[in-house]
């Protein structure tokens, strides 16, 4: 299943004094099984774009096709689209409302009109995927859980829809390092084991560098870069010009090159730069 975006434009508050163009001629195809890192500073249009992917926002002009269905079409079943494309908002724990963990996760599947047995299966499966112990936690109140657990319940609530594409808007925002690692780990597993297509909005270049196989950069409502992390992070200057960071490995590689070391272009992972440094050390003083 793929998502095709053609000439997408979106204007906020059309006609008013505060009219702002949030998206401008966006063209993208999201393929099955990709892991996309979507980056851009606040206000670059990322959040507006992801809300188009499941029809929460309708284009001002242009088209969004999910699995061939045009979202703007009156005949399109929005719920079917929202089942296929799951969207996890920023700070998703703020949307929890049910008395128990189990009921909250079941909210999505219930809205899909599934029978109890299937709902039950999905709740258990979703909890397993986010590493929450069903037996111990399913009857607990969501408001008694820790921040990290609440976030995982919220993600499970979207996973229980069994979407083929999972869009996450800054899933690690506000978490401590342990919490971040847990969330990133489960997203990675979801991509690898269940084959779910992932679109992850993130401010952390290091997270994107370590997980994504495609990076899309947005600036002023436009897609300005779209490619492999290797290609995108090779453009360090441009990224910084847009107010974005680059992964630390890219920074180090650049500075080493300035000092005359022969570091290959396109290095963006810590492990890669480590290998290069070890090569330098093995060669000894030739560069000094």
């Amino acid at each position: 299943m793929s998502i095709v975006i053609e000439h997408l434009n979106y204007v906020y508050m059309t006609g008013g004094p505060y009219e702002t163009k949030a998206l401008s001629d966006v063209n993208l195809t999201i393929h099955d099984g990709e892991f996309i890192g979507l980056i851009g500073h606040t206000g670059s249009g990322k959040s507006t774009l992801v809300q188009h992917l499941n029809g929460l926002i309708m284009p001002t002009s242009g088209r969004v096709l999910v699995d061939g269905m045009d979202l703007a079409d009156k005949g399109t079943d929005r719920r079917a689209v929202r089942q296929r494309v799951g969207l996890v908002f920023q700070y998703p724990e703020n949307q929890l409302f049910e008395e128990t963990v189990e009921k909250d996760i079941a909210f999505g599947p219930k809205n899909l009109g599934l029978d109890d047995a299937e709902i039950d299966r999905r709740v258990k499966d979703a909890m397993r995927r986010v590493a929450l112990d069903y037996d111990r936690l399913h009857e607990r109140s969501v408001f008694e859980l820790s921040g990290g657990q609440m976030r995982r319940v919220a993600i499970a609530g979207v996973l229980a829809m069994e979407p083929q594409v999972l869009v996450l808007d800054e899933p690690c925002a506000g978490l401590d390092p342990r919490g971040r690692e847990e969330i990133l780990g489960l997203i990675k597993k979801l991509h690898e084991e269940a084959g779910t297509t992932i679109v992850m909005v993130s401010h952390s270049m290091d997270d994107v560098a370590s997980l994504a196989d495609r990076v899309i950069v947005m600036n002023h409502g436009e897609v300005v870069m779209d490619g492999t992390p290797r290609d995108v992070f090779a453009c360090g200057e441009e990224l910084r010009g847009m107010g974005l960071d680059v992964p630390q490995a890219v920074l180090l590689a650049g500075k080493l090159r300035e000092r005359g070391f022969d570091i290959p272009e396109g290095i963006y992972r810590i492990e890669e730069i480590k290998t290069e440094i070890e090569k330098i050390a093995a060669k000894g003083g030739r560069h000094a």
Binding site: L56, R79, R82, G86, N94, Q95, F107, N111, M161
Partner: peptide
């Protein structure tokens, strides 16, 4: 703003 966000989040889970 928060209402708008929560509403969308629940719609993403199929709420009507």
């Amino acid at each position: 703003e928060e209402t708008d966000k929560i509403q969308k989040a629940q719609m993403a889970r199929g709420a009507d």
